[in-house]
Amino acid sequence: MNPVFDPASGRIRLDATTFETLCREFDSPSPPGSAPASDVTPLAPLRTSGALVDGVVHEALRPALAAVQRPIAMVHLVVAGAAGRQLHQGWLSVVSAVLADLGDGSYDFAAVGTEFVPTLVARLTRLGLRPHLPAGRVPVTEAVLDGLAAHKAAPRAAAAQALVSTTASVWPAWSAAVSAGDWRFWVVDVTWPERAGGAASASSGRRLAVLDTSAGLLRVDVDDSGPMLVAVTPTEVWRLLSGMLPGDDDLSPGLLVQPDRAVSRT
């Protein structure tokens, strides 16, 4: 696809290959004359869209690309459902960046204020008004959770079917919604380098996994007996989301995440 760039908002819609080219041009601009100004080079779509001007990345894109280049922490958000699966990525810094998966092979890339990252996650997961389910805890297997987030529709459907039977006695309306294909499983991971003293490649982080239907919300809680599904309200989900980003106590001074800007297709 041809990228669509809005210089007023700094937002660009593009495919994965073009995103990687954009990042490369921001990190190491091609020397003048090294790339012909024809319409068949990898840079041509970026030039045509206005994201590259005279070989330089447009200034409206630079804050987001700076976050990709030197992130303090990373965000990965998988949103899966009966109809498909999307992987959104974020790079946290003073100003953060998000690459939102539009589900059709294209992505929206833009800067976002770091304090608005929980709001962005809420919008991408459609967190909002839901009935409050009665309290309860139901065991769930890692295999079912993996299946719910699988790339292919068949394992997602099989995992959802497994949930229908295990939850019906505790949350019948919720179980019926899943049976009707009305479910969404989302997992957000925020990761950052471990504080000084750990292994160089070690990372710390927080994870929140939620099973959402129009009948209510369940959260994945892990205790000594393994993963459990626990009834949760939108308020509780928001409380957890708002506390996911690393604070000063989590981060080592001056330590940045290794750049990971490739569009993950896993």
């Binding site: 204020g113 304090e115 709001t119 967190l127 909002g128 008004l129 409050h132 939108p234």
Partner: peptide, 29 residues
């Protein structure tokens, strides 16, 4: 963004609670 709304007792009387997020004029969340 409206996040939650529930009926509950407020100040000893029937009422409700609402949870929402928004941006201020200074672009604070």
């Amino acid at each position: 963004l409206l996040l939650d709304l529930e009926r509950m007792t407020v100040g000893g009387h029937p009422g409700a609670r609402r949870l929402a997020t928004h941006a201020t004029a200074e672009n604070q969340s």
